[in-house]
Amino acid sequence: MRLYEFEGKQLFKKFKIPVMESRLASNPDDVYNAVSELNIPVVLKSQVLTGGRGKAGGIQFAEGANEARTKAAELFKLTIKDFPVEKVLIEPKVEITQEYYIGITIDRAKYKLVVIASGEGGVDIEETAEKSPDRIVKFPLSIDEDLYTFDALLVAKKIGIPQVLIKEGASIIQNLLKMFKAYDAKLAEINPLVLTSDNQLIAADARVSLDDDAAFRHKDLDKFNITLRHEEGEMTEREKQATEWGIPYLDLDGNIGMFPGGAGFGIMGNDFIHHFGGKPANFMDSGGGPSPERIAKMLVLLEENPNVKVIFGARFGGISRCDDFAKGVLMFLNDHGLTKPMVFRMTGNMWQEGVRLFEEAKTANPDMFKQIEFHGIETPIEEISKRAVELAQEVGA
């Protein structure tokens, strides 16, 4: 659950991490009023839940209120990586003499937290790690381990924070870790932490991602108007609909609609599609023992997705019965209809009954199955995966 920059900075302030005075605006007139009040040169920062806003023109500078309003009008017209700019953060323009990077994340391979720091901030930390790994400082910690002051001082010293500010730098690192733990974060970055010309350390940007599964533990987030949201941005309309129906669903950037059984089978299906040269349009999970109504709604999500050219289904009946799966598909076909090719396979619990239901329905209404290929255990899933990719290529051509 990624936070906007202004939300991350609200949490920073709570943990005594220095940030600049700021104003939040929802339209150009709000920007004009805020800059008039500040009466100093400012930076206007688009608030979007993705990176790359600087390269996209999402950060602008203005010397006064009139210029700020003009530039804000252009910012509010921007869409950055599919995210429209709906809010702009206004902060004083400062003279920067040095930029640092401070971050905390989870090392999932080692089951540890890791403090990451560098004397080169304001750039992609992955790029720095690749090109100049010697300029990255890493300090691993167990989840219940504190970062002692002498360790934080050592990190601050290694990244080149001036001696007169080294205690303050160490405090910022420690407080970022406290915030990370307090809010069950998955990532907390200050990039950059800037050293200004008047010798202050300020968190010039905030990237914070919280664990949405732990959000129920943090009722105080309501005070900051921080609400549950998609990991990298607001939910798409289909994701919102799926959530309302109780279906785990995530839009991806491919054109093959994934219609799986459980999450494990869904992940495997996505891997097969990638392996044979296709691109999944989504991830989805039916859950254990889904009703025919739930199955039908899963197909509605794919049928109404304009990016989906072909639907690929793979059902392994365990707790979930294949005859219920077949009933759900038939419910969808009768109530909604299908306009796209679909290929799927059933095996496991009651698969023969599921195939029988399809065969009977096809005999009664052949036209309904013109674009559907269904298979049982006799056809390997690899063949079904390849067929879905072939169909997608044919439709694309």
Results as ranks from 00 to 15, higher is better:
170 A>V: 01
250 L>H: 08
365 N>E: 01
395 V>D: 10
345 R>P: 07
22 S>K: 10
232 E>L: 06
216 F>C: 12
126 E>V: 05
236 T>N: 04
307 N>K: 10
154 L>A: 14
367 D>E: 15
47 Q>S: 07
151 D>Y: 14
282 N>V: 08
246 G>T: 03
372 I>N: 02
338 L>W: 05
227 T>F: 13
187 L>M: 12
146 D>P: 07
119 G>W: 05
176 L>W: 02
7 E>W: 04
328 G>T: 15
263 A>G: 15
212 D>I: 06
198 D>K: 14
318 G>Q: 14
80 I>A: 10
285 D>Y: 04
213 D>V: 09
9 K>C: 09
227 T>I: 10
157 K>M: 10
350 M>Q: 13
192 P>H: 02
397 A>W: 01
373 E>H: 10
94 V>F: 01
388 A>G: 06
74 E>T: 13
173 I>C: 05
41 P>D: 12
296 A>K: 06
17 I>L: 14
126 E>W: 06
276 F>Y: 15
28 P>M: 11
301 L>F: 01
71 K>N: 14
43 V>T: 08
353 E>T: 01
85 V>L: 08
12 F>M: 14
354 G>H: 03
158 K>Y: 00
118 S>Q: 09
177 L>N: 09
38 L>S: 00
195 L>E: 06
342 M>F: 09
84 P>T: 10
73 A>D: 14
47 Q>W: 01
138 K>N: 05
51 G>F: 00
146 D>Q: 13
192 P>A: 04
243 T>F: 02
129 A>C: 06
308 V>L: 07
292 P>K: 04
133 P>I: 12
133 P>K: 10
166 I>R: 15
74 E>A: 09
159 I>W: 11
80 I>F: 03
24 L>A: 03
218 H>L: 08
85 V>W: 02
268 M>W: 03
203 A>K: 08
128 T>Y: 00
338 L>N: 01
9 K>A: 11
40 I>T: 15
273 I>P: 05
331 M>K: 15
198 D>Q: 13
23 R>E: 11
367 D>T: 11
21 E>Y: 02
113 L>Q: 12
62 A>K: 14
222 D>A: 13
349 N>K: 04
222 D>M: 02
211 D>W: 02
53 R>H: 09
160 G>W: 03
134 D>V: 09
44 L>Y: 07
386 K>L: 03
320 S>V: 10
247 I>D: 03
199 N>F: 05
100 Y>K: 13
12 F>L: 12
64 G>V: 00
34 A>R: 04
229 R>S: 15
378 E>I: 00
283 F>L: 14
